[in-house]
């Protein structure tokens, strides 16, 4: 993995990254990706991917509101809130 790829991935993941970090992560991530290559030894033709190990049927419930009126609780942890809204930097010029 090269520095440019690290930078691209970091941008996709919304992580600001310094030159020095690009270097360090390129080596470490490259090492991990090389290590996982051993998965290639396994024949997985006709094997279904397993996403969920728990064999239970999802339950249905009535589509009714069972929560709400907690605006202040929702906003309580916001770094910046004003008049019942989250505040973010200006996004439209």
């Amino acid at each position: 993995m090269d520095k440019a790829t690290v930078k691209k991935v970091a941008t996709l993941a919304r992580l600001a990254i310094t030159e020095a970090e690009q270097e360090k992560f390129a080596t470490q991530l490259g090492g991990i990706l090389k290590w996982v290559e051993m998965m290639g030894e396994v024949n997985t033709d006709n094997v279904e991917p397993l996403a969920n190990v728990v064999n239970i049927d999802l339950k249905l419930r009535p589509d009714i509101v069972n929560d709400g009126d907690i605006r202040d609780a929702v906003l309580a942890n916001a770094p910046e809130a004003l008049e019942g809204f989250f505040v973010v930097p200006k996004v439209v010029e």
């Binding site: 996982v36 998965m39 290639g40 396994v42 997985t44 094997v47 279904e48 991917p49 397993l50 996403a51 190990v53």
Partner: peptide, 14 residues
């Protein structure tokens, strides 16, 4: 190459 492959081997492990 990575994620689906890993999920397939996960089934073999199970």
């Amino acid at each position: 190459a990575y994620y689906t492959k890993a999920q397939k081997i996960r089934r073999l492990i199970a």
